Simulated scan of single mutants.
Amino acid sequence: MKNYNMRYYFPIGLLIFIFLDGSLSNVFAREFFTGGISIESLLVLLWLVMAIFYGEVDRLMLWAFVAGLIFDMYYTGILGIYMIIFPLVVYLNRQVCRFFTSSFLVVLLIYLIDLTLVSALAFLANSLIGLANISLADFFVADLGPTLAYNLAWFAILYIPIKNFFEKFS
């Protein structure tokens, strides 16, 4: 018998993580966006990656699209960037996760790759439309590095609770 709780819990969790991304960025704006450093909170990506490895979520590609649409509408103001990137990451992760066991280290490394991919694709898209005006080297040092450190710290903190949640309700 299939557990239908995830049908309701997953979208609620997705909205909570989208809200947390914006709220943490707002509350810590002085720390996240100082001088030459910019940190992007991508906890919604953590939620999606953990759903791939530990959850049984119906229509995850659709939810990734919806998360990208909301993320674009409220945080970037440009429709299309995350609306395409999040489903792409979900698709790629589904293809890759078949070859690996779900362990802390494997999920951590895949999340690291996903963060790099999402940040780099968003930077590339913003560069193409003229919104990013820094060099690639500056992007790696001032944006990608701090973003990876911040999001990987949250991964270490939230891994066990999110894993337990998905295992319990999937």
Rank of each mutant, 00 (worst) to 15 (best):
M1D: 00
K2H: 13
Y4H: 10
M6K: 03
M6A: 10
P11S: 08
P11M: 06
L14F: 00
I16H: 00
F17M: 12
F17W: 06
I18C: 02
D21L: 00
D21K: 00
S23R: 03
V27R: 01
E31C: 03
T34V: 13
T34N: 13
I37H: 07
S38H: 12
L46N: 06
L46E: 05
W47R: 03
L48C: 05
V49A: 11
V49N: 08
A51T: 07
I52M: 13
I52Y: 12
I52G: 11
Y54S: 04
G55M: 04
G55H: 01
E56A: 07
V57A: 04
D58E: 14
L60V: 03
L62K: 05
L62M: 09
V66Q: 10
A67Q: 05
G68F: 08
G68Q: 12
F71A: 07
M73E: 14
M73P: 11
M73C: 14
M73T: 15
Y74L: 15
Y74W: 15
T76M: 07
G77S: 06
L79R: 03
G80T: 05
Y82F: 15
M83P: 03
I85T: 08
I85N: 04
F86I: 09
P87A: 01
V90H: 02
L92P: 00
V96M: 05
C97E: 13
C97Y: 05
R98N: 13
S102A: 15
S102G: 15
L105C: 08
V106I: 12
L108H: 12
L109H: 08
I110A: 06
Y111P: 00
D114F: 09
L115C: 06
T116M: 14
L121V: 02
L121E: 00
L124C: 03
S127C: 13
G130F: 01
N133L: 10
L136C: 06
L136S: 13
L136A: 14
A137Q: 11
F139L: 02
V141E: 04
G145H: 13
P146T: 09
A149M: 08
Y150I: 03
Y150A: 02
N151F: 01
A156V: 14
I157Y: 10
I162Y: 09
K163S: 03
N164T: 09
F165V: 13
S170F: 09
